[in-house]
Amino acid sequence: MELKVSSIPSLPRVNSGLAQMLPIATTVLAALLAILPVRLPGYAALTPAFVLMAVYHWTIYRPDLLPPIGLFAVGLTQDLVAGTAVGAGALVLLLARAAVLRYRRAFIGRTFPFVWSGFALLAGVAMLGLWALHCLMQLSFFDFRTTMFRTVLTVAIFPVASFALGRTQRALMGATG
């Protein structure tokens, strides 16, 4: 497999420390949000992949502020705290970042439905990859319907996350961010 990684473009400088921390902070928050015990029937298995939403958003708009090493740390920590296979989350997030970074130009300045469909594609591939990885590791066939519903829920919730992230980004980084 060829791991071709695009270089990070130069983006407008962000002076405020708070704004610089925003991508990492929101990604960490998304990781915490994903393991909170929401008391809805079946929710635990279907929890939307919040971190993937943050990674998609920030890799398109501010890849310079979400360095791969930070993403690796967040992914690994999430794996460890959530009790899932160590490294699997980190791997999927890094691959997702690499994929989005390659095509990010195609998403800048486009309409929201276009950005949304890009996310749907990413979420589909990422969830399928995660499912295959876990099946391989446990040598057992996990119910694919759960993965499918989880993907649908993730894609359905993306507009809310995208709106919240976009608003926070504009508030802290201004129009240039």
Partner: peptide, 20 residues
């Protein structure tokens, strides 16, 4: 900047195998 992401991806894969 160019080599970090692939290295981290390989590291994550190695961690998965080690953990297994």
């Amino acid at each position: 900047q160019r080599t970090t992401p692939p290295l981290l991806i390989l590291l994550a894969a190695a961690i998965i195998l080690l953990g297994k």
